[in-house]
């Protein structure tokens, strides 16, 4: 690991206002509300950046538009944008996203985490690492990594 911060002075953006969902006065008890972009985004927006006290939303690492979800086919893809190209934290961020979604979505879902094309020096390697079941499982055996992930996820369980 490099000593010192990878990106010492990131740009912090304003948080988007929480979009409150309109609650109809008459609720149909049996109507199904599908899992949608905003719901996925609500799960991950408050995850803390591994090296700064800001949320991924504030750093614009993730945005609502960068989430694809298909509830019927149980598929979700999150594309995130590291703050700098050589960010070695990209894998940790990706791991956090994966863990958080694994814990928040029904088991039927397949989660795909990707770095946005052209935003990272070793894009292909990171993508491969993040979507390799074995390597993710191995990473989660590492107590240091798990501690780090848990710390980043803590704010998202509001």
């Amino acid at each position: 690991m490099v000593s010192g911060l990878i990106n010492a002075n990131p740009v912090v953006y304003e948080k988007k206002e929480r979009r409150s969902r309109s609650t109809p006065t008459h609720v149909d008890e049996y109507a199904v509300e599908l899992i949608d972009q905003l719901e996925i985004f609500d799960h991950i927006r408050d995850i803390k950046d591994p090296e700064h006290p800001y949320s991924l939303e504030e750093l614009k690492v993730i945005s609502e538009d960068a989430i694809e979800v298909d509830d019927k086919r149980s598929y979700v893809r999150v594309t995130f944008t590291p703050t700098v190209e050589h960010c070695s934290m990209a894998t940790v961020i990706g791991l956090c996203l994966r863990v958080k979604l694994m814990r928040s979505l029904p088991p039927r879902y397949k989660v795909d985490i990707r770095v946005a094309p052209g935003t990272h020096a070793t894009e292909a390697a990171v993508n491969k690492q993040l979507n390799d079941k074995e390597r993710v499982a191995a990473a989660l055996e590492n107590p240091n990594l798990v501690d780090m992930v848990d710390e980043c996820l803590a704010p998202s369980y509001g």
Binding site: Y30, E39, R103, S104, P106, R108, L140
Partner: peptide
Amino acid sequence: KALDDPKRIVRQEAVRCRQAWASIASRSI
């Protein structure tokens, strides 16, 4: 199972509940 509830609010509560119960013991996801 509740994570797959038809209603969004229930799913949100389920995430919170899952975290509460998962974290009472060793980390295991």
